[in-house]
C-alpha cells in the first residue's frame, strides 16, 4: 500500500498584478484503494492542487510538503513524479504536434515501466482498452489529441490511466464538458482502474454528477484555497442539494448579500 501525503501546502502564482497565493495551507492524505473527491466552486484552487502535485512549472510551492511513501515529491521533476506513480488526467489536454498516439503511448509506457512493453501483448492491451472506452481504432494513428473533441480528449486521458497503471490518479475535472454517455464511459474506466485495488484516486470536480458513477470514500470541500469541510459520501449529497453558497463567508458572503439586495 502507498500513501500520498500533502501537508500544509501553500502555492502561489505570478500574475501581472504580482504574486497571488492560491492554496493557503492544504493537508490531505490519500492511500491506495481510496477515492477522495475534492469539490468546490470555481477559483477555489482545486485545479491548482492537481497541477502542483504533477509539478507544473507555473505553480510555486511556498510552504508545505508533498510526499509519496515518504519520498519528497516536490524535489522530483515532472517526469520523475510520473515514473514514481503519479498520474494527472488533465482538464485541458494539449494537442502535441507530430506524435502519433501509438508512438506516444508506447514511449510513455516504456518510460514509466523502465522497459519497453512486449509488443504483442501491448498492442492487444491498447486495442482492448480503446474498445472499452469507445475510442475509434483510427485514433491510434492520429497525433496526440490533435483534432479530438473535448469528450474524446477526456477518454484518451482515462485510456492512459488504464494503461499506465499509476499508484495515484489525480483527475482534474475529467467530467466537465462530457455528456451523460461519455461520463458513464469515462467513469467505468476509472472504476476499472480502481478495482485493481492498487490505485488511490483524487477526483476533482465542480459538479456532483460524476459521483453518481464514481463513489468517493471521502469528500473534501475546497473554498478559497483551503479545505473548509470534510466528510463521507453523504457530504456530496448535501452539496448537490445546497450548492456551495453556505460556505461563502466574510467578504464573499457580503458580496453575495449585496448582489441579492441589488436584485431585490
Amino acid at each position: 500500500m502507498s500513501t500520498l501525503e500533502i501537508k500544509d501546502l501553500h502555492v502561489s502564482i505570478e500574475t501581472e498584478q504580482g504574486t497571488k497565493e492560491i492554496l493557503k495551507g492544504v493537508s490531505l492524505t490519500i492511500k491506495t484503494g481510496e477515492t477522495h473527491a475534492i469539490m468546490g466552486p470555481n477559483g477555489s484552487g482545486k485545479s491548482t492542487l492537481a497541477s502542483t502535485i504533477a509539478g507544473h512549472p507555473r505553480y510555486n510551492v511556498t510552504r508545505g510538503t508533498i510526499t509519496l511513501d515518504g519520498e519528497d515529491v516536490l524535489a522530483m521533476s515532472v517526469d520523475q513524479r510520473a515514473r514514481a506513480g503519479v498520474f494527472l488526467a488533465m482538464q485541458y489536454p494539449v494537442e502535441v504536434p507530430g506524435v502519433t498516439m501509438t508512438n506516444f503511448l508506447r514511449t510513455a509506457k516504456t518510460a514509466i515501466d523502465g522497459v519497453a512493453p512486449a509488443l504483442r501483448t501491448w498492442t492487444k492491451d491498447v486495442k482492448a482498452a480503446m474498445q472499452l472506452l469507445r475510442i475509434d481504432a483510427d485514433f491510434a494513428q492520429r497525433n496526440v489529441n490533435e483534432g479530438f473533441s473535448g469528450g474524446e480528449k477526456k477518454r484518451v486521458e482515462i485510456l492512459q490511466l488504464e494503461l499506465f497503471k499509476p499508484k495515484f490518479a489525480v483527475l482534474d475535472e475529467t467530467d466537465s464538458g462530457l455528456d451523460v454517455d461519455a461520463l458513464k464511459v469515462v467513469s467505468e474506466g476509472v472504476n476499472r482502474a480502481h478495482a485493481t485495488g492498487n490505485m488511490g484516486t483524487l477526483l476533482i470536480t465542480h459538479y456532483t454528477r460524476i459521483l453518481r458513477y464514481i463513489k468517493p470514500d471521502f469528500v473534501h470541500v475546497f473554498v478559497d484555497g483551503q479545505v473548509v469541510e470534510e466528510g463521507g459520501p453523504e457530504l456530496a449529497d448535501r452539496l448537490e442539494e445546497e450548492g456551495y453558497d453556505r460556505y461563502a463567508t466574510g467578504a464573499g458572503a457580503a458580496t453575495i448579500a449585496a448582489a441579492a439586495a441589488a436584485q431585490a
Binding site: 504533477a54 509539478g55 507544473h56 512549472p57 521533476s77 515532472v78 517526469d79 513524479r81 510520473a82 515514473r83 498520474f87 494527472l88 488533465m90 489536454p93 494539449v94 502535441v96 504536434p97 506524435v99 506516444f104 514511449t107 510513455a108 518510460a111 514509466i112 496526440v144 492512459q160 499506465f164
Partner: peptide, 13 residues
C-alpha cells in the same frame, strides 16, 4: 512548455 509538460507528466524525460 505546455506540450513539454504534457509529455513529461507521462513519465517521458
Amino acid at each position: 512548455d505546455e506540450h513539454l509538460f504534457y509529455l513529461m507528466a507521462r513519465g517521458i524525460p
